[in-house]
Design a protein around this nucleic acid. Sequence first.
DNA 1: CCCACTGTTGACAACGTTGTCCAGGTTCTA
DNA 2: TAGAACCTGGACAACGTTGTCAACAGTGGG
Lengths: 356, 356
Amino acid sequence: MSDRTRSPLSIPLPRPRYGARPTMKDVAARAGVGLKTVSRVVNGEPGVTAETEHRVQEAITALGFRRNDSARVLRKGRTASIGLVLEDLADPFYAPLNRAVEEVARDHGALLINGSSAEDPARERELVLALCARRVDGLVVVPAGDDHRYLEPETAAGLATVFVDRPGGLTAADTVLSDNFGGAREGVAHLIAHGHRRIGFIGDQPRIHTATERLRGYRAAMAAAGLPVDESWVSLGPTSPDRVRAEAERMLTGRPSPVTALFTGNNRVTATAVRVLARFPRPVALVGFDDLELADLLTPAVTVIAQDAAQLGRTAADLLFRRLEGDDSAPQRVELPTRLIVRGSGELRPAPGTAL
Amino acid sequence: MSDRTRSPLSIPLPRPRYGARPTMKDVAARAGVGLKTVSRVVNGEPGVTAETEHRVQEAITALGFRRNDSARVLRKGRTASIGLVLEDLADPFYAPLNRAVEEVARDHGALLINGSSAEDPARERELVLALCARRVDGLVVVPAGDDHRYLEPETAAGLATVFVDRPGGLTAADTVLSDNFGGAREGVAHLIAHGHRRIGFIGDQPRIHTATERLRGYRAAMAAAGLPVDESWVSLGPTSPDRVRAEAERMLTGRPSPVTALFTGNNRVTATAVRVLARFPRPVALVGFDDLELADLLTPAVTVIAQDAAQLGRTAADLLFRRLEGDDSAPQRVELPTRLIVRGSGELRPAPGTAL
DNA sequence: CCCACTGTTGACAACGTTGTCCAGGTTCTA
DNA sequence: TAGAACCTGGACAACGTTGTCAACAGTGGG
């Protein structure tokens, strides 16, 4: 039939109504006032005498009434909730981003609905559309795909969208990125400055914008130093430990020109590379994109290009709420700087023979 | 022009209605059919001819219609969303739990709304009640406080609640815990088996259930070995690096009986302790509760009592959905086993003088 | 030809809330 | 004392969807 996305509510569930919830009508009846008066009390609107308010409050607590925000949302048109779609909630890089967005949402009295796309564009789409159906006021998205035309009806209807970490496929949306190109270039330049000439690059899949940007930074740094790049030193692909391990070992043992240093394209790759290097007979310098917890305590300590994931999230969410508050200036593209954190790897244990 | 702005939900926000969203009514008008027919098509209900369905589908895509789930929720009484409240979304221990709950929710066609309580009972309550107002179908809570009577009206109305990681203050709710007592006892026993007699315990604040359970495990292991516990070896309190550092240093240098080993009560404490020990002149054994990423690569590698955070989340969410599907058996209390992961610390570098 | 039946379709009420508007009553002003 | 201005409170109609039920056309049997 059609490619109708699976609708959450279409899952058949029994509806055990232990007891119907009290509504404003019930409260009104018990307090002996009109419906609207209850509404006024609940919302702290003026125009209710202290005595009436007291009666209503009493009825509310007696009945255990709690306003039904679904009805409220329907009536008001705003949900006071925003959506966040990212790759993996559990990834140490995205978790702080998630938290930062939540914090900003909280400051604005909004709730956060979120989900993981698992780097699958179809799943991203499904999630985003589910959020749209819930009529979230705004959306922060770490895009998995690059075609977001399906969002156009939504944005036309007033949905605010901010892409973060990677650009999305909607020119009309704000975007918050790290300086992936510059960061990678700086990291590779750091290795070059310490005498390395043959440097391997292991990154994420080429369809991911950050992966290609970082690779671009790697090439720029090499070119700036006048160093040739053997294509066997470059590998983009899935970040599964198996692949990364294989690629790292291949580059480290490659004939005729094994690399003396590695630049790793994100936190997962770096973690695997550290494991490989820990058992490797020859010292190899390593600089990684993304900081790791306890990276300072590893042997050797890992030099990294750190992104501020929380700041990415905060900036994106701030931007989103500014839009929700009415800012309709041209879409922005914010680029946050990265920071080189030198921790010894690269200079404490540089490859002994710096030649070639 | 007059209806350009509308009032907000909780905070005053202008409401720029770029264009009103099309509703089923609009779709029906365009397709030249009745409202209910559109509803049928949208929900895949039977009883619509292929020809009519086609006309409706066409109108839907032409108008960019998307069903408003708020209205649907109001009508149906179920939101197909669940809430998750935990301490900190960004904590490496809770992030996988979050992800696991999301995954289960997704399998059940539900969305996940979540928030961090920041270990503040008032904030937890605020969050939980906001979720109740949204009429989430169920709630997974890592309790910050121990009084959850405020939830009683909700559970009476059919809200399913599962506490995870720590027991909550509602006897009627399911609870999923790790074997904190047994895990800590095993970890401390491991240290004792390697000759340690003076072992320090640094844990989280005493009002947190897991902290006291783990301390109980520590005492049990010491008692089982017939070892006395000097109260200067025990410290419960905030897990801020400053405090942990100070306590660790105090125990390590204490007169007349410095500890030769430390048992740390959770991942944050362990991380700080590792930093302290890395600079400490004397080798000190360390076993920590909770695994750390890259813990195997630290020097010395850290032996841990690992909890499966994802499994905690999965179990809790499974339990929740079983309740939502009608299971009304007696509340369960599930206790998941922990796993001792021996990584060298404790035996590779035992305190040299094992005496006293 | 009528009747019962099936299959398709739409009119209408409800879900629980808030915005609009108007009815009373009270107090202040002229 | 009339009139205006204000305060309090309630009736009612939306918001967009789905459940109920009835209308209607077409079909086959008697």
